[in-house]
Design a binder for these strands. Structure first.
Lengths: 182, 182
DNA sequence: CGTGAATATATCGGTTCGATATAAAATCAT
DNA sequence: ATGATTTTATATCGAACCGATATATTCACG
């Protein structure tokens, strides 16, 4: 699924600027689902407009440079639904954290511990954002709650595992508690 | 972390061809951690060889085209460790499945159910591969078991959530547990 | 009053993907 | 035995995408 299709999807929920679309990837329902940079989003919106799958209007703001607000067209909506119905690809993950853990035997222990703390903090932040979104009155649709719940379940499992098993890879911890199973 | 660095990391475990590196992403410890295409791996290995971070030898095979087996150099090893110690980026996920669930209200119910079945099957496959890797005598290092265990915990949480909550987005389920309107 | 962050858009080089091509051996089917 | 498919192995190329950077203005903080 390319960025064009993803932008089209976000626009089914309502009008948005490129800036707002970027924000959605970071803060909202789409945290941990998809991400894209400005360098992808702005060209994607331009191309979608050329294909009449979205329309834009420029909104003047007092002083500040004009906003370009994009809205999906009926054709865009149909195109998005057709794309999503045609099949999906398996999830793709890129976890530098897991890479670091796999190669932890090559790294200073302090670095490894810092990375685990960082990763736990990121996960707790993401969890808080997800639970805020889940409680939002605008997110009460069953399928949205399913998607949010799935992300939440994953985050909770990761946090619990890291909290309970981080002693496995600490040389100090290994000396204290010789890594058992669960 | 670019593909060059990742290839360097895999080569700390021993010699490998480009083909074998691709296989590692699919079958082994790196399933659900990282992925890259041939179009990235081969050029990456070529550039690493130019920088003397890896060396290659051509291994003749009876009849079949020659293998190019890559091995990491001491400089390559140092370079990899320095890269990993310098910091890591947050995990990046691209889940077309979660996208489909978020927009499930726009899709035929049969499509949604098929996607859930597919996703469950993929997760069960990945879990089986991970548990086979976990039991392998060559994977008994504590940090490897931590990385594998984390992946396992995530997969188990996803599978359990989908099994217990998939009725949330089925219209049949909705009939059993009346949801709001559109 | 100045510094920095936020809003908004755009560009550009470099990285990576996906599809495709070649080629020989092994394996499987008919 | 002959043909079809899969596996091993490498390579290329356009399209997609990222990360950094640039510009310009407003708002908030001290």
């Amino acid at each position: 699924m390319d960025i064009k299709t993803v932008c089209l999807g976000l626009l089914t929920f309502g009008e948005a600027t490129g800036y707002e679309i970027k924000k959605l990837f970071e803060d909202g329902t789409f945290n941990g689902v998809f991400d894209a940079s400005f360098g992808s989003i702005y060209p994607a919106l331009t191309r979608l407009a050329e294909e009449d799958l979205v329309v834009s209007r420029e909104e003047e703001q007092h002083g500040r440079p004009d906003k370009k607000v994009y809205a999906i067209t009926p054709r865009g909506r149909a195109h998005f639904i057709a794309s999503l119905t045609a099949g999906i690809q398996p999830d793709r993950v890129r976890s530098e954290f897991s890479m670091a853990m796999i190669f932890a035997h090559l790294l200073p222990d302090a670095t490894v511990q810092t990375y685990i703390d960082q990763h736990l903090a990121e996960h707790r932040d993401a969890l808080a954002r997800l639970e805020a979104t889940s409680a939002d009155p605008g997110s009460q649709m069953a399928n949205l709650q399913f998607a949010i719940g799935l992300g939440r379940a994953r985050l909770l499992a990761s946090i619990a595992f890291m909290e309970h098993h981080r002693n496995m890879i600490s040389p100090d911890g290994a000396a204290l508690a010789p890594a058992g199973r669960d």
